[in-house]
């Protein structure tokens, strides 16, 4: 029975880690390919919290000691709290620094 649980935990953490890595890489690619600052910030911010969340939960499944699990929960909590706050401050500073969002782009300039 123990082996079954360990097997399931390992498979679960593996799947979560792979998904988290994929979302982090998609965020990085989005950071490079998007045309405007605000779209890049959307790409970075969204996949940042999601990728970090998946990777940290994947690590949680592998943790053996309780204290490691608690620390991982704290890291996940701070990541989920500070991510949106930093993105909001960045967007406000950008708007305050009169950086205009790219509202439309006709086909010619693509």
């Amino acid at each position: 029975m123990e082996i079954m649980i360990d097997l399931l935990l390992n498979i679960g953490s593996g799947i979560l880690l792979i998904l988290g890595g994929f979302f982090c890489v998609s965020g990085g690619v989005g950071l490079l390919r998007f045309p405007d600052f605000y779209t890049r910030m959307h790409a970075a911010g969204v996949t940042d919290t999601l990728g970090a969340g998946l990777i940290l939960v994947g690590l949680m499944l592998q943790s053996t000691h309780l204290i490691v699990l608690l620390k991982l929960i704290l890291v996940l909590l701070f990541a989920l709290l500070t991510g949106p706050a930093a993105s909001h401050a960045l967007a406000k500073a950008a708007m305050h620094g009169n950086l205009k969002p790219l509202l439309y782009r006709d086909k010619s300039t693509r």
């Binding site: 982090c24 950008a94 620094g97 950086l99």
Partner: peptide
Amino acid sequence: AILIVMMLALIRAFIGPTLYDRILAVNM
């Protein structure tokens, strides 16, 4: 994968036209 993403963020930090792109890349 995380190292690759860090490289992508550094690339955006170097070529980022505006200041806020660089801050965003450093944050990521």
